[in-house]
């Protein structure tokens, strides 16, 4: 009994980490540019596919492929910002939502043309390995997700608080105009934030790939991650991670203990309840416009 609970806890945390990472991508972009990026899940899908292509088709090994795909998707994110998304800054939020929904559809279409609509599995150094810890069989794939998330969060935290560039990014997120006056190249910083956010999405995709399977609909995980970001309070980085973990845990436990059919819905029910009680999410803050 306890073993099952621990097992569920571990798997829930791992799934939650993925949601948290994708949600983190949403929040980074939203904090900086106030754009809501609905294509985040599809960037994750592209990351997973790129890594698969390098590992299996070109056979360059898991780790180089991992690094290469994250770099490529990061660059792609920066290019997206530079070429397309920058044009809608200052327009209503809705415009950006529709724009990124359109981009997401294009990415899916591109993926199905480039890599076909088959379902792939990504071979990794830790595939199908397990160790027994305290009577619970711990799959290394799940462990790798949790470890990867922890490391990534630590790196991002250090970057945002201890480097000059990171602090500049925070400044640009808080107040564009003031940051611009202080000599921060705001446009460049925004492109970098897009790159980081797309890179995080790619990492999430590669981490998820061995557990889930890679197909063009992988991006729909973005919807759940979106729920996670909103649950945590859009615009709060710890909120995004907490929201992701909450949704992951709810999903796994409701799948195990509630009647069939609740697994996919429970997260949304919780989301609706939280939004009714606290419309700004768990960690969000809401200000009232002065008239």
């Amino acid at each position: 009994m306890l073993g099952t609970v621990l097992q569920l806890l571990l798997n829930g945390l791992a799934v939650g980490c993925i949601y948290g990472l994708v949600a983190l991508g949403f929040v980074l972009i939203y904090k900086a540019t106030e754009l809501v990026n609905f294509a985040q899940g599809d960037l994750m899908m592209l990351g997973a596919f790129t890594c698969y292509m390098f590992t299996v088709w070109y056979g360059i090994g898991y780790w180089p492929a991992f690094a290469l795909s994250v770099a490529i998707i990061g660059l792609f994110g920066a290019a997206l910002d530079r070429i397309i998304l920058r044009r809608v800054i200052g327009q209503p939020q809705f415009a950006a939502v529709m724009l990124t929904i359109g981009l997401g559809a294009m990415f899916r279409s591109f993926a199905s043309m480039a890599w076909g609509s088959e379902i792939y599995t990504l071979p990794t150094p830790f595939s199908a390995q397990q160790s027994l810890v305290a009577g619970v069989s711990v799959s290394h794939e799940y462990l790798s997700i949790i470890a990867g998330t922890v490391i990534l969060c630590a790196v991002l935290y250090a970057f945002f608080t201890h480097t000059k560039l990171g602090v500049a990014m925070q400044a640009a997120s808080q107040n564009q105009l003031a940051a611009y006056y202080m000599g921060i190249p705001v446009k460049l910083v925004f492109s970098l934030i897009w790159a980081i956010s797309a890179g995080v999405a790619a990492i999430a995709g590669v981490l998820l790939a061995p557990v889930s399977l890679i197909d063009t609909n992988l991006g729909f995980i973005g919807l759940k991650a979106f729920a996670a970001a909103v649950l945590g309070g859009f615009g709060s980085i710890p909120g995004a991670l907490a929201g992701g973990l909450t949704i992951g845990l709810i999903e796994l436990f409701s799948g195990a203990y509630l009647p069939e059919g609740f697994k996919d819905v429970a997260a949304y029910v919780v989301l609706l309840i939280v939004l009714v009680l606290r419309p700004q999410g768990m960690f969000g803050t809401v200000g009232r416009k002065r008239v």
């Binding site: 929904i101 359109g102 591109f110 199905s112």
Partner: peptide, 14 residues
Amino acid sequence: HPGLEPGIFGLVLV
């Protein structure tokens, strides 16, 4: 290609 149609819709939207 079955993926073409959503891609075209996405492109038009963008």
